[in-house]
Write a protein that binds this DNA or RNA. Structure first.
Lengths: 337, 337
DNA sequence: TTGAAAGCGCTAACAG
DNA sequence: CTGTTAGCGCTTTCAA
């Protein structure tokens, strides 16, 4: 009669063993005879024994739980890190707790508190722009990897993309095609990613002798709707920008939808370049030129760092910054005279 | 000195209270004075007290953990149910454990076993095509909602789309445009979804007096690469099919990429219709016609059912089947004479 | 190679 | 309204 109510003691009683012996057999302890292990495992299977992780946690003081805190799991970036973490967890016998903050600092705090109750082995986080103070202090007590978004106040390792370099790459590409009136659609500077991209945009323009025009900069929440609204705002001006840098895949999606709806021709009426990767980038028109992130590699790196042996110490505050690359497709072209 | 090593007893000692009183204060028990609650909460905050969920689980016998078992979290369907579940969990003070099977039955079993160790409140699953027997028996002991994919052997509620009706809708659309040689790209019949869609395809053709041609049916693993390969296989035949039904968004992505690469014109050379929803469907060419799922509604329903009060009993084996709808875009056209 | 025993931190029944 | 007490199931010494 299989039942998850069976305990170690039940098994032990059935087998005429001490429950400590059963425990050792199940955890494959050296000092247990193969015969005993076999008998125990058979009985466990027969009874449908399922260990109680609570008892283990209580005894050992820590769990095999790993947390992943992200603003949005539908976003391909975060889904990819989730996939990688899940893979590594299942290989190593860890569990993955998913915390979705929806970019709400209060919710983020609540989720993190609940995670800490499990005494997790570690956590990978992409924090909200302005986290609660308690969130930060909670994070100080855990092994923590920051993914993409980086807060200076959080210690631990950091895995991200070189966002400033990415923006620079995008703008240099547009400049090389003769564009000067380049619109920027981005997210709040409160986000490390938003700040870095905007900085890259401005600096690159300035170095080329083009003064950044505040009217060509639209900062907005990182949603599809936001992208559409920002594109509308920029393209409805006159004179129009001749090129657009959409600084995230979400924003790019909204922008692309709006451009389609507005019947603007790309790159005829406006060149468009995006940041990031999405499956649809090579499907839209003649392809959407983009500065691509090594997203898979970023995710794999974050996961590997989380699970690294404490032997291979990296200095207290280390950051891995991966370089983006330009993928030219059909949406950018030389500016018409 | 905040530290998550502080226990209830520490707090109690500091406050000169019994630890049971502290416990009650923290869980907002009725029979505790407001003053005591305030003092306790203040002290807890001050000491950075974090409860030990293991001790609670050990004592109560159940956790607030909810599991989500899916084959692939990058897939938008599953990411959406994850988002919905995460939302509801955080509202109700539950935790979300993410189990990604990668469509591997053995891994699926391992993940489920680990989940059961937490004595979860429930689980939402999209099982592999042929799960291990133990997986099924484990599921019998938990509150379980099947999402999209349905196994007859698993009891509990079921939330899915009417896949047969969806395929029928797609094929009827193509038939009405004059197509007869309609290729089908789908997944294994071992999956309930794969079987239902193929059945809808065949039956609809037969009812229209068209004998399904086995050479026009490509069953393949549900990946982007699979979609590309299947499209190639079907379109390289001669005579070519004049229309293609791509029976999942993943397959559609692969198919679209292959058609682009092969420089086939859509709908000029071939009409294409897909199943499901993806952000890029209206961005590809003049738009990809699709039979759309109420994906958000499905996810919300599954989550709501999981959290339903046991009061609102639904009969033992109930299934919610939501209807798809046809979204006409530019990729389907009347067959050329 | 196995057994005996202690105790992790919490909740809840019972007592006051 | 608060205190006392027992015990959840497990791991891990220490003994044998």
């Amino acid at each position: 009669m299989p039942s998850s109510k069976t305990t170690l003691k039940d098994l032990a009683a059935h087998l005429g063993l001490a429950h400590s012996t059963v425990s050792r057999a199940l955890s494959n302890h050296d000092a247990i005879s193969q015969d005993t292990k076999d008998r125990v495992r058979h009985a466990a299977r027969q009874y449908g024994y399922v260990a109680n992780s609570g008892a283990r946690l209580l005894r050992t003081g820590h769990s095999q739980t790993v947390g992943l805190l992200v603003p949005d799991i539908v976003n391909e970036f975060y889904a990819t890190i989730a996939k990688n973490l899940a893979d590594d967890c299942s290989q190593r016998g860890h569990q993955l707790m998913l915390l979705v903050s929806d970019d709400d600092p209060q919710r983020e705090l609540k989720l993190l508190q609940a995670l800490l109750e499990t005494r997790p082995a570690g956590v990978v986080v992409a924090l909200t722009a302005v986290p609660r103070k308690e969130t930060l202090s909670h994070l100080a007590g855990v092994r923590c990897i920051q993914f993409l978004r980086v807060h200076a106040k959080v210690q631990g390792l950091t895995v991200g993309a070189d966002d400033a370099a990415a923006a620079r790459m995008a703008i240099e590409h547009l400049l090389s095609l003769g564009h000067r009136a380049i619109g920027y659609v981005g997210v709040s500077e409160a986000l490390s990613t938003g700040a870095a991209r905007l900085r890259g945009y401005k600096e690159t323009l300035e170095e080329a002798g083009v003064a950044p025009d505040p009217a060509l900069i639209a900062l907005i929440e990182p949603s599809v709707q936001g992208g559409a609204r920002a594109a509308a705002q920029l393209m409805d001006r006159s004179p129009r920008p001749t090129a657009l840098f959409l600084s995230s895949p979400q924003l790019a999606l909204g922008g692309a939808q709006w451009l389609n709806a507005a019947k603007l021709r790309v790159p005829g009426d406006v060149s468009v370049i995006s940041y990031g990767n999405s499956s649809w980038f090579d499907l839209w028109g003649s392809g959407l030129t983009a500065v691509s992130l090594p997203i898979q590699e970023l995710a794999a790196t974050a996961s590997a760092l989380l699970f690294r042996e404490s032997g291979e110490e990296l200095s207290g505050q280390t950051s891995v910054l991966l370089a983006p690359s330009l993928v030219k497709r059909g949406s950018t072209a030389r500016m018409r005279a």
